[in-house]
Design a protein around this nucleic acid. Structure first.
Lengths: 219, 219
DNA sequence: TAGATTGTTAATCGATTAACAATC
DNA sequence: TAGATTGTTAATCGATTAACAATC
């Protein structure tokens, strides 16, 4: 592992994409893949893929390409998915429940192992094999189960408070579904998963409404 | 509206963020905001905010800043949210149901008005005020309700087929929650909302597991 | 007027892509 | 060997940030 250069976020964010495509190829019994083939599949420039991977080591063979299973194991290692990572979810509403049931992260060794909520109606509720716990139990459970990542699916107004509690419990990373900008200590990394941003920005690219011509169409 | 320059995706994707922060300020009865204040709130460079907005017009006043409600109305117009936009959702599983109930897009004039699924168990099911419809009814409903955006929440394996059907029905934009790369005609724009990417890339930034020292820590 | 803040140009920074020697 | 494809350097492209005149 070289790691001397700081690796940019853009690169890291592409690694799960590579993993996803490689897993698909692996299921299709494909042994070897070139950066060109992978690029076609993912709509990315082959040079970019090669450069991204080269930050972490020499995984390919000139004239041949990349061995699919070998590359999978390498990327899994880089993303620290070769060891199990426990996740806590806070906010047992519709979205939270959906994510708990989804649990397709298991293949990737990520697992939601505890669910928390503030509301008396929710506490004690059964989701999958988990019982919804009160927030008071957060810190103890995080320590007991060595939970390292927290998912926030509470309403926007409550998100900051939950983030504080997660940070206090010693969590290292937060995936935030609430449309709110969280302030956290530098030891905690926050990734944003609010899809409303994606949905609203999608609207920008719609054609100007054809029913009305009060906006002159000048291109 | 100037629009002669092609506006970059990065800029467009920040507009919903601005809108979100401005809405918050508006609820807090704030009349006016400077790019600096907004930048602090959103963790963005003030110059970037000014530049972004300047692509679309002169919305601020030198020495004063931006009028909050005026800027909200301008951004809503740019994002085409000043007219209602109807959305269809395909895939009435856990996640799909959660998104239907969520429906907090209403304030933003986006509304899920129809839900579709393939599975006999799901068809006819009631979600909110909507009845889950079979896929056969997709095209007719899209036309009847002037639906312009589709949300895909089906399993990965079915995503491409659904995308084809949405494109065929005349949808203009797709928000895809499935971890799959969709091939669509150029008339359709796809935005990706698969949070597993964000979750997995979060793992990269975790501290090396402190329990084991089989990896020498060389910084 | 003095202080604040915009809109915009120029400078910087970083990320993507092209090109190619090395080599399977 | 000839063809394919990597790893990597150099060139390009685009996005962010700094700086400042204009002006409220």
């Amino acid at each position: 592992m070289k790691q001397q250069t700081k690796i940019s976020e853009a690169v890291v964010r592409r690694l799960p994409l590579y993993l996803q495509a490689l897993n698909e190829l692996s299921r299709g019994e494909v042994q070897t893949v070139s950066s060109q083939a992978l690029g076609r599949k993912l709509d990315l420039n082959p040079a970019q893929i090669r450069k991204d991977l080269a930050y972490f080591g020499e995984f390919g063979r000139k004239g041949i390409g990349y061995d699919v299973s070998y590359l999978i194991s390498k990327i899994r290692h880089i993303l620290k998915l070769d060891r199990g990572i426990n996740v806590a979810l806070v906010g047992a509403g519709n979205l939270g429940q959906a994510l708990c049931n989804y649990n397709r992260y298991s293949r990737d060794n990520m697992k939601i192992v505890a669910v928390f909520d503030d509301h008396p109606d929710k506490i004690g509720m059964q989701i999958n094999t988990m019982r919804v716990q009160p927030m008071e139990e957060l810190k103890a459970t995080v320590e007991a189960l060595q939970i390292r990542i927290g998912i926030i699916t509470v309403p926007s107004a409550a998100a900051q408070k939950v983030a504080d509690q997660l940070a206090d419990a010693g969590i290292e990373g937060i995936l935030n579904f609430a449309p709110a900008i969280l302030k956290v200590p530098p030891s905690v990394r926050v990734h944003h998963a609010d899809f409303t941003t994606e949905l609203l920005s999608l609207a920008y690219y719609l054609e100007k409404d054809a029913d009305h011509d009060d906006d002159k169409v000048v291109d």
